[in-house]
């Protein structure tokens, strides 16, 4: 359950630059924060009439990302799960509930919020980084995987 992954500083930094570019483009074009939580939540329960279309289009673009990479490299980037399917399902509910309560996730707080030096994000990001690290430590080094 602890697969070794390769250190990829260049690909990761390049990917980060693209993420940042998308975040800036959405603000320049539509004046919106690019938080994956916010974009999705507005589809599940709309904030205003006519507010769904751009969100669905954005989500469709996001989902197409791995396919765009496959067009260039010839293969969809591989992903490796680190937990069992029941754990993935329970974790999904926890993630959804937490990001709604905390008004954001890695993109909304972690990229957009930090870039704006938002006081809320400056608190939220270290908080979730810490609980993520503690959770992973317990799962891997105390429980030995789930």
């Amino acid at each position: 359950m602890t697969p070794v992954t390769q250190f990829t500083p260049l690909m990761s930094f390049g990917g980060g630059l693209l993420i940042g570019l998308a975040v800036v483009l959405l603000m320049a074009y539509a004046g919106r924060i690019f938080g994956a939580t916010g974009v999705l939540a507005g589809v599940i329960s709309p904030n205003a009439p006519g507010d769904r279309g751009w969100r669905v289009a954005t989500l469709a673009g996001m989902i197409s990302g791995p396919l765009a990479v496959a067009l260039i490299t010839g293969q969809i980037p591989a992903i490796t799960m680190v937990s069992s399917l029941p754990a993935i399902a329970i974790g999904g509910v926890i993630v959804g509930f937490g990001v709604t309560l905390g008004s954001g996730c890695t993109s909304g707080h972690g990229v957009c919020g930090l870039a704006r030096l938002s006081p809320r994000s400056l608190v939220a990001v270290p908080t979730f980084m810490l609980t993520t690290a503690i959770t992973i430590y317990i799962i891997r080094h105390v429980l030995g995987g789930i």
Binding site: M62, V95, G98, C105, V123, A124, T131, T132, I139
Partner: peptide, 27 residues
């Protein structure tokens, strides 16, 4: 805010998936 962020971290730790990662991963 703090409780939500803390809860999110537990879920991110269990699965390794956050909303911004999971939506593209659907592809």
């Amino acid at each position: 805010l703090v409780a939500g962020a803390a809860i999110f971290g537990v879920g991110w730790g269990i699965t390794g998936l956050c909303p911004g990662g999971a939506i593209p991963a659907l592809g």
